[in-house]
Design a protein around this nucleic acid. Structure first.
Lengths: 143, 143
DNA sequence: AAAAAAGTGGGGGAAAGTGGGAACAACTTA
DNA sequence: TAAGTTGTTCCCACTTTCCCCCACTTTTTT
């Protein structure tokens, strides 16, 4: 399970390190894709297969389903981390997430999330400030 | 599984490269056809067979089904990529998709999609901006 | 404080993108 | 029918990009 919060910088070549703790999970590659809220999601192969299969079975003829599968699948890329555990993000993912120099990687159960540092900070502040309200809204979705 | 987003240019002879990662899948030819949303769809032989069978089983009596099968089947062509993995698109497919010089190829599960670069950009922007709504609508279709 | 581990940076070689020429086929015209 | 013209396909070559590997610096741990 992925948990915690880690800071890294992106070098001139667009490489970003994955947290040491989790590197072994990505030995046989990881899948990075566009996540919701304009961050990036990183999955292990195994977890990705589950997700992708669901997406792939959506009906061709429904526009929403078509667009969602385009968004998720065309945004995805399989990357093999280099010898020291870094991945090279394609430019379209950096643009989508607005990642420039400093990033925060957050563990969220079955995936990692990559955020621009500044965005993460303000997002976190907002979350912390409104945690009570968030909790109350959760009861509405059956938590 | 086809995933990712790749940029290529079309040369004066109308040739467009397929992404290196997937070339081996098309060793024994690929089927290109008119897709929905005015892009082109590229299938492996195997996947095409499955799809064609599905389409063939649609009810003759529904106008939508008739039109869909016309679009897909009459537009389809089998192409053998050249030694460096390029395909030569027939002019009616270039016209249908409005492909000129720069294209984006997107992997979407069991097919590749070929888009004019400009169209893809605006389409993607729209999708990205409305990703929250799209995602929420998906819960309605049981995702 | 020393050693080990992790973060960061850069250079070289291989592979991929792209362009063009030559050979061949098809179609047109004299 | 033969010659010319157009178009297509195969193959080769150049250029650029990307990826792998190595090394240095910084941080952490014993």
């Amino acid at each position: 399970m992925f948990i915690g919060e880690y800071s890294y910088s992106i070098d001139d070549k667009g490489r970003v390190a994955l947290p040491v703790k989790f590197r072994s999970k990505f030995d046989d590659g990881c899948i990075v894709t566009r996540g919701l809220d304009h961050c990036l999601w990183v999955y292990t192969r195994e977890e990705w297969e589950k997700l992708a299969q669901q997406i792939g079975q959506m009906p061709l003829t429904q526009k929403n389903a078509r667009n969602f599968s385009r968004l998720m699948l065309s945004g995805a890329i399989e990357i093999q981390p280099d010898k020291v555990g870094r991945v090279n993000l394609p430019s379209y993912l950096k643009e989508y997430s607005n990642i420039k120099n400093k990033v925060v990687i957050a563990g969220v159960y079955n995936r990692l999330e990559i955020w621009p540092e500044e965005v993460w900070k303000s997002f976190k502040k907002e979350m912390e400030d409104s945690s009570d309200e968030i909790a109350e809204q959760l009861s509405e979705v059956g938590f």
